[in-house]
């Protein structure tokens, strides 16, 4: 099976995990990595730089309608929703927050699930609300691979636990196992 994209959602407690995942991916990672992370309102800048520090693949906040490329990571910009359009293009939007969140993890996951169907890998990490749960369910409904970080390992469990309550998933994994999984792709 060749996959077309990985999408990762998280909020409180996910920053370290995402950093570790990015640092472990090879330069030639064969698909784009989409990151939809909630951040504190005042932490608008410096986030990309922090994630890029040791990452082997470039990390950027995408422009609207930018075309996704493999071996790159795209971080949803603060205060924008990030959608996936067909034809591999990102679409940004400043419409209202969903469940008090912008970017909304659900929206990013739902549209990615729509665009990539069974060729998508969705991962939900540590987080303090239930945004993302419905999105990961949609990834599963569309035949994609679903992974949730092991709640026992999460700094904040709300996001992973509400996801597991809403939908069965393919794997519940620790950060190390997630890294292993991705490196086999």
């Amino acid at each position: 099976m060749d996959y077309k994209a990985v999408i990762i959602g998280g909020s409180a407690g996910s920053f370290q995990v995402v950093t570790r995942i990015l640092n472990s991916l090879p330069k030639s990672f064969p698909m784009p990595v989409l990151l939809c992370l909630h951040r504190l309102k005042h932490v608008r800048s410096g986030f990309v730089e922090a994630l890029s520090l040791k990452s082997n693949i470039p990390v950027d906040e995408p422009y609207d309608k930018e075309q996704l490329k493999p071996s790159r990571a795209y971080l949803a910009p603060a205060n924008y929703h990030m959608y996936l359009e067909l034809a591999n293009r990102i679409a940004l939007s400043t419409e209202d927050a969903v469940n008090h969140s912008r970017p909304s993890i659900d929206l990013a996951f739902i549209t990615a699930a729509n665009a990539y169907r069974q060729k998508l890998i969705g991962i939900i990490l540590s987080g303090a609300n239930k945004d993302g749960a419905f999105g990961l369910k949609k990834v599963r409904d569309n035949g994609g691979v679903t992974i949730v970080q092991d709640p026992n390992e999460c700094e904040v469990r709300t996001m992973t636990q509400s996801t597991l309550q809403l939908t069965p998933v393919d794997h519940v994994l620790t950060t190390d196992q997630i890294i292993k999984f991705l490196n086999k792709l």
């Binding site: 929703h81 959608y83 996936l84 359009e85 679409a91 939007s93 419409e95 929206l107 549209t111 729509n114």
Partner: peptide, 8 residues
């Protein structure tokens, strides 16, 4: 852009 408009 379809995704956003559909949601609206």
């Amino acid at each position: 852009s379809e995704k956003s408009l559909k949601r609206r």
